[in-house]
């Protein structure tokens, strides 16, 4: 098995970019979800990491930090059958509708 993608210590890379962004509300929500699930013993930080490591090199680099986290969290919750696939799809659709309504009411 070759070196895994996330295990990057010592590899060549460019300069450290020190510009920063303030965490968006949804990013903090991802963090909060993981803390709660971990605190309740539903999933471990180790499972979070495993899920992140398994998303593949392309997605690992393309996704932002908390995009990787929520990908791993949702996959773990599906594997553990805490949530189901189609109900997750429906909840995502509902989130989009709620957001569109909120944005629409803002611009009126």
């Amino acid at each position: 098995m070759p070196r895994r993608h996330h295990d990057m210590g010592g590899l060549p890379a460019g300069p450290v970019a020190t510009d920063e962004h303030a965490h968006a509300p949804w990013e903090k929500k991802v963090d909060a979800i993981l803390r709660l699930l971990s605190g309740k013993g539903i999933m471990t930080v180790d499972e979070l990491r495993r899920g992140i490591e398994e998303i593949g090199p392309d997605a690992y680099d393309r996704l932002s930090y908390y995009e990787r986290w929520i990908t791993s969290i949702s996959n773990n919750l599906l594997e553990k059958r805490v949530i189901g696939v189609s109900e997750l799809g429906e909840a995502m659709q509902e989130a989009q509708i709620r957001h569109a309504q909120a944005v629409g009411s803002q611009s009126q």
Binding site: M1, R3, R4, D7, G9, D46, R50, E53
Partner: peptide, 8 residues
């Protein structure tokens, strides 16, 4: 393969 915390 798999999850390991020992850096390469």
């Amino acid at each position: 393969p798999g999850h390991v915390r020992t850096p390469w």
